[in-house]
Design a binder for these strands. Sequence first.
RNA 1: CGGGGCGUAGCGCAGCCUGGUAGCGCGUCGGUUUUGGGUACCGAAGGUCACAAGUUCGAAUCUUGUCGCCCCGACCA
Length: 446
Amino acid sequence: MRLTRYFLPVLKETPAEAQIVSHRLMLRAGMVRQASAGIYSWLPLGYKVLRRIEEIVHQEQQRAGAIPVLMPTIQSADLWRQSGRYDDYGPEMLRITDRHDRDMLYGPTNEEQITEIFQAYCSSYRDVPKNLYHIQWKFRDEVRPRFGVMRGREFLMKDAYSFDLDKASAIHSYNQMMVSYLRTFGRMGLKAVPMRAESGPIGGDYAHEFLILAETGETQVFVDSELLDLNFQDREIDYHDQAQIQAICDEWTGAYARTDDTHDQAVFEVEVPKERQVTARGIEVGHIFYFGTKYSEPLGAMIATPEGERVAVHSGSYGIGVSRLVGGIIEASHDDKGIIWPESVTPFDVGLVNLKQGDAETDAACEALYGQLKAAGLDVLYDDRDERAGAKFATMELIGLPWRVTIGPRGLQSGTAELTWRRTGETHEVSPEDAVSRLAETYRGL
RNA sequence: CGGGGCGUAGCGCAGCCUGGUAGCGCGUCGGUUUUGGGUACCGAAGGUCACAAGUUCGAAUCUUGUCGCCCCGACCA
């Protein structure tokens, strides 16, 4: 993509309304535009990142056996009356009426809908286990939306719902999602720690929130540093192997990790040696929850056991805040110059900077390299504006592309380009061919 | 929902107290200049001063109401 033909409205100054760093950088990098309180338009650069995060979530959900569907944003109030949540949910739910004066709502979540779908088609133990998920916009009318996309009213969320014959099987479904989440967040360059959450009336240990540590997090967290040192990396997972999945879950939940909701200072001090006690702020990016028959009973989602008995199906729900992750990743990865995208979610793989636009020789060198990078399968943003070096560098650093190739008259004399790593500023003088092959290698498999 | 603040050009702001035909910086457009870290200079375009009512000869400025946005707190399956 040539920058002169792209739509990238970067700002030199920080808009007054933005307080936290991810919100500021998203506005300055031209990623989003606020439409009203807690509601945003996604501009091209922001949309690209959102889609890449979404794609990783899709891949990892399906790898873990979840099946994609798409449910509507607007729901009928009827199902919510059946589950009893129409009255319980309160003013956070956006309620609307259609032309026939029927009560409708903009979905804040989809337990009722998915359970209705499940019960309509599934009636036997042969139909389970099933895990259906979608990535869809949600609306929760927060009293005070803030922090840009981190706490919006309208937000994109992945929500998966598992259906099992009994609790033991449901716990395996739960564990599969926990492992899937570790992989998902790991791929995005995040260290997300599962922390014990309020489990509600069911009891047990089967509710976890995934938090990434960041100074601007809204939640106080208490964690054993042992967990922070764990590394998921790219280990081979067999999601059908119950023992392996259970072992991974045990590894990640074996040490103390809780938010202020469930924190117990006495237990913390007994279980965790002083030097490993970490108190920090966290951002919730995922939530997994086993809720048993809470919705299947009122909504009549029953299945027959092999013995012919009809029982309520055991369910869990599993959320990932897809749009929130865009802000979360920036909170976790930026410096005073701007964003630093991990290669896995970056809007462009590489930025190409022409230091002397209009000069026949540098223009030709840039055009050639631009073509080679694209031919190597890389997504390139070519800054072909007639701007000074400083302005071009500042733009690239602001929008956070992990790699920059710089071509100017100085390097061309010796036939070299500069390859710069955003994260450290480290620069290598390489031939254009080497730049292409190194970048292609870096992005292989991502 | 309690408390506080702000709506003036695309962005950041001044002007308001003490009413008199709206200004600065950045950005944008045209030109000269410069050319490896946001060059310098000249010129230009761009605003129903959030909206409504009122006071006044005259309102961005004073009064009242409405709307929008932000911050602190409470809230957040």
